[in-house]
Design a protein around this nucleic acid. Sequence first.
DNA 1: TTGACATATATCCGAATGGTTATACGATAT
DNA 2: ATATCGTATAACCATTCGGATATATGTCAA
Lengths: 112, 112
Amino acid sequence: MKRDDQLADTFTAIADPTRRAMLVRLAREGERNVTQLMEPFAISQPAISKHLRILREAGLVSRRKVGRENLYDIDVTRLGNIRDWISQVDEYWDQRLDALGDYLNKKKPKKK
Amino acid sequence: MKRDDQLADTFTAIADPTRRAMLVRLAREGERNVTQLMEPFAISQPAISKHLRILREAGLVSRRKVGRENLYDIDVTRLGNIRDWISQVDEYWDQRLDALGDYLNKKKPKKK
DNA sequence: TTGACATATATCCGAATGGTTATACGATAT
DNA sequence: ATATCGTATAACCATTCGGATATATGTCAA
């Protein structure tokens, strides 16, 4: 429960539909400012800024200030962490299947 | 924002550290009852039951009643949905990289 | 049949969450 | 210089969330 924190932040940030939609948009279209990111949604600008802050603190997006605009872009690094977690779970699960297989052909050569 | 619901439920369920830990445990050890699943945590039995309900409603675990016990097990199907979502985002991102590459060698053959 | 077990549900509570409006402030445009 | 734009932050509110305790119900053991 210690440095699971980062993973928890990533999962939490990504769990919200609005934030996921923003990530998808950034992935497809690249760098966008806050006003552009607002457009698809029927919520206030401060609400969008709040979502962006959460994404940024979770390391899922980067921010670049240019003049009076703040340009955000996706950072896929942390998505890799999630993928890794899932892979780990899948791996355990596969091992269970393998173990079951071994059990069924018990006393048979346990090759591959 | 319509049938994103299922994905949202999956992400939300998986975002909680306690629930993730339970999933990992089930993946490694297979079917376990509520009492067993409680052991590693310093929280009440009803709290555990609540977590299990959320995991079950998100389709991440199955429940099998045997006598007075409820046996839970992981169901990895929905993890695939998450993986797919991430892959999709990665794909968009890769396309951006490709487009950038094409731009840099502009007027060069755009082969592979 | 009676008490202990296994577990779900109901109710309540404080903290976190997502949203709103108001406001501040630097960057631009006029 | 001044108004407007782009955006963050503050303060507030309703809802949701994770947990606690109390309780109900079915199953098993004595």
